[in-house]
């Protein structure tokens, strides 16, 4: 569960990214975060995995108060949160299998367990046959699926996605969306910032709209609501 109480974020250059956000996301929910560019969507996501700290206000993730969290406990918070980006952030010199295994090596999992679990998630994202291929030999959609596999491999309770379909064509985007929906159906909370009107309006979920750093709309089975 994620909870924000009157969260403000002002960057050192004076930009007010968020002004008084209060929101509650329950375990197992699927949430779209929509709004114009620069409205504060990315900041909203970044605050949840402690890449940024709020200027004011409190954030709880799985009952942990991020404000009170000590610097050296951050890695343990992040092991419970998977993050996916628009630009995939894969390591080009590692194969698909190695890229996913990397996330487990980092948390010092036993190698037998790593092999087994990586196989599992690659099956989930339907890339088992490309395990030994390097990222630059894959299409954008496949790369994003590798990134999702990496985000899921440590069984996080939350998956954060910052414009995961931003670089993909519509058809591939749908593939990614069905994957995210399946992950959500298995119990993982999904929070996804997006500009994709078609997806939001077709695959109806909760929609949180942010404009100028404030939540202007929050509805279950909402619509995108902006002209693209």
């Amino acid at each position: 569960m994620i909870e924000m109480i009157d969260v403000w974020k002002t960057y050192p250059n004076g930009t007010h990214a968020l002004r008084g956000i209060t929101v509650r996301i329950k375990k197992g929910e699927f949430v779209y975060v929509v709004g114009p560019s620069g409205a504060g969507k990315s900041t909203f996501i970044k605050l949840m995995y402690r890449e940024e700290r709020p200027t004011k206000g409190q954030i709880f993730v799985n009952g942990i108060n991020l404000e009170a969290l000590r610097e050296r406990r951050i890695p343990y918070l992040r092991r419970n949160i998977g993050v996916v980006f628009q630009d995939f952030k894969l390591l080009p010199k590692l194969t698909v299998h190695e890229n996913v295994a990397f996330a487990m090596e980092v948390v010092e999992a036993p190698s037998k367990q790593i092999r087994q679990r990586v196989k599992e998630v690659l099956e989930l994202v339907k890339l088992s046959h490309k395990a030994d291929v390097y990222p630059d030999e894959l299409s954008g959609g496949e790369q994003q699926r590798v990134a999702i596999a990496r985000a899921l491999v440590n069984r996080p309770s939350v998956l954060l996605a910052d414009e995961p379909t931003g670089n993909l064509d519509p058809e591939t985007s749908w593939g990614i969306m069905h994957l995210l929906e399946e992950i959500n159906n298995r119990g993982t909370t999904v929070v996804m910032a997006t500009h994709n009107r078609e997806i939001v309006n077709t695959m109806r979920k909760r929609v949180i709209a942010i404009e100028n750093g404030e939540i202007v709309r929050d509805e279950q089975r909402g619509e995108y609501g902006y002209e693209t």
Binding site: Y49, R72, P75, Y76, L77, R78, R79, V83, K89, L91, F102, A103, V106, V107, E108, R150, A151, N154
Partner: peptide, 16 residues
């Protein structure tokens, strides 16, 4: 630095 960034994202400790 990209690798380090990813390591931090997936929860590697600083000493790791």
């Amino acid at each position: 630095r990209r690798e380090i960034e990813i390591m931090k994202l997936v929860g590697a400790t600083n000493w790791f």
